[in-house]
Design a protein around this nucleic acid. Structure first.
Lengths: 201, 201
DNA sequence: TTTAGGGTTGCGGTTTTCCACAATTGGCGC
DNA sequence: GCGCCAATTGTGGAAAACCGCAACCCTAAA
């Protein structure tokens, strides 16, 4: 089951992996570990939830390289970097790419756990938002091409008669499309329609 | 005139201030310099536009302290840090607080200028958005209490008769309020109203 | 060929919206 | 008190939206 929120640990040092896994477990945070960025990317699934705890310097793929790959695959999980070497440009670059945090070793256990918990909470919020947006997108996708033509003009605030004129069809036809759009989008009025498409998708 | 976009240089080293000012000038970027965070904060005005180029380590107030003060005063200008000392926690903290970039000295002149130009562009975009939102807020504030009651219900997609029932007034009165709301908010339909209040304010 | 779905249209009728004209009430500042 | 403004209401009519019913055309799949 990929859908349970996990702390995804990626580190080439077995001692660190074990220590992190143990630390997280004692704090009630489920985790799973990988020994390289390549291994993690091989298992990566967009349905994975939680956060990623990524070592910066590893054999093979580096942490930042792994971040780039994850972003390229549309990963939205917060990524927390761990580093043993002071390297400001790397930290700046990672954070500007969207990393959630960048922590120097040795780190305070409690601090790391708090960061991970914050990251998990952020992911949960994002997940909820994404679900809402996905619902709207799905409804939007269920509209026919013609219905989208009409909806576009409804959202522009145009009257049915104007829409009919622009699309060169009868007003009655616009009314039918309009009703079907409302039904498919699960709204009762043009106002609600405007809100779901501009506020939630 | 505070409103012209400037690169606001804050550094306690006169040589650096002059060098930066000269660098910016040769690239067509107007700038002004301060010799301490306190001095800059004393002159700070929310109407200032552009970006801030802030040294991390200075006599008196540090760069990060200055950032905190600026944020507390609602400053939205992008802040670029310059630092001569590798300090990952400071960099991470600054970026997580919203700093635009964090650059180590010695830096490449061209790179810094590009960052400043990006920051100025970002500020210009934000400024445009803020202006639009301020306009909407101003219009919103011009509504009477009763008009706000009605608008709230219009945005909930309710029919005039339902609104009249809820507010215990005649449908005709709701119509009048409705028309006045549209007029004051500068829109022609309920759909546009929903878009300006949920998308732009 | 039959079936299914999308797009289209007309008819007739109800409901809402939108507006011009006209008027009343109550608070507030001069 | 007087004038101003927000809030309120009514009348009456034109325009638009909304709906159920029935139907036709066309394309793609079974």
């Amino acid at each position: 089951m990929n859908r349970a929120p996990l702390a995804h640990i990626v580190d080439d040092d077995e001692a660190i992996r074990d220590a992190l896994a143990w630390l997280f477990q004692t704090c009630g945070v489920p985790s799973r570990a990988w020994m390289s960025g390549d291994d993690f990317l091989a298992d990566y699934d967009p349905a994975m939830r939680g956060c990623v705890v990524l070592d910066v310097r590893m054999d093979g793929m580096s942490g930042p390289e792994c971040l780039v790959q994850l972003l390229a695959r549309g990963c939205t999980m917060p990524v927390i970097f761990l580093t043993g070497h002071a390297d400001v440009p790397v930290a700046v670059s990672a954070l500007k790419k969207g990393a959630f945090d960048f922590i120097e070793k040795p780190f305070n256990d409690n601090e790391l756990v708090n960061v991970v918990i914050d990251a998990l909470a952020l992911d949960a919020r994002r997940q909820a938002n994404a679900a809402a947006r996905a619902g709207t997108s799905a409804r939007l996708a269920s509209l026919s091409a013609r219905e989208r033509d009409v909806m576009e003009r409804i959202l522009a605030g145009k009257l049915n008669k104007v829409i009919a004129d622009e699309l060169d069809i009868a007003v009655r036809t616009v009314e039918v499309h309009r009703a079907r759009i409302f039904e498919k989008m699960g709204v009762k009025s043009a106002v609600e329609l405007a809100q779901v498409v501009s506020g939630g998708g």
